[in-house]
Amino acid sequence: MPRFNAVKWFALAMLLLATALVCAISTAPANAAAAAGNALTQKQEKVTDSLGETFVPRDFQRMVTLAPNLTETVHFLGEFDRIVGVTSYDNYPPEVTELPEVGGYVNPSVEKIVALKPDLVLAFRGNPLPVINKLKELGITVFVLDNPSSLREILEQIEKVAQLIEAPDSARDKIDALRKGLDLREKAIKALPRRPRVLMLACCLAPPFYAAGRGTFIDDLIRLAGGENTFKGKGFAVASAEDIVVADPQYLLLPAPPGDAKYRQEVLAKLRQYSYLAQTTAVKKGRIILIDEDILTRPGPRIFQALEILARELKGVGV
């Protein structure tokens, strides 16, 4: 009866496993989510995140930020010392390297985040939804921000975070200053007779060349700096050789590693290898605008620095 024996062995093994499983399940924490603060008070004005959930502003003291721009936002608001954990991509402000890392923003460790005992996790729509859901299930407050598509939206997000974490009035003043700056720019660019044509390439060492198109905050950045984005594709998409030749950008805007003096020459040499890029006005005249990649590509408060740099570079163009 070999088959019966096999079944017996299996039954024995399964019994062992099942016992282990039952033990495990019976000790599981009673629905942690239910225990999570649902005590919404009516007095305060609630803040809504990008998933449509509402939050009551509070003086959060242990924040984990799941993207560098979110860390920079909290730092901008003057509340950096309330952050207890960041991603491994974080590098600003410099003190950030002393904070514990929770992994990349695509692959953060739930366990590491929980171990930091945060009272607020600031996430964005690029973080994996299962991780966000898991954190919520464990009773952690997770505020999910959107991917902003304009500088005004970036400003709104900063404002939202300021409201959520009850940032001091000095932070509100800084936000107001940024908003006034934006309003002034909007007015100033209306008066521009002609706008220099700018193409932003997200990476520039080899094709395919990804360019910032409509609906990206970079597109808005170029517009506000007084330029005209030559790439009309949607989102960050591949700019074809034909596109580039036809649009003939007068300026190329590129993210650059900070503190690399030789980078400009290297980039120009690379770009000249491709005839369709070499014959653009930008490359022929060597008009490559390099901005620190962390400032240019992160939808946080430092994007307004990028705006100043770009506006300065584009001013007085021989249009």
Binding site: I25, A28, Y105, V106, N107, P108, S109, V110, R125, G126, N127, P128, L129, P130, V131, N133, K134, E137, D146, N147, S149, G235, F236
Partner: peptide, 28 residues
């Protein structure tokens, strides 16, 4: 690509596999 604002890199989860969101109801 059509819904980048919703998915972006978070969808990498589906493409390469991860148990980061493991929870008790899934075990059940």
């Amino acid at each position: 690509i059509a819904f980048p604002e919703r998915m972006l890199r978070g969808a990498l989860f589906w493409l390469f596999g991860s148990l980061a969101g493991a929870s008790w109801w899934q075990v059940g």
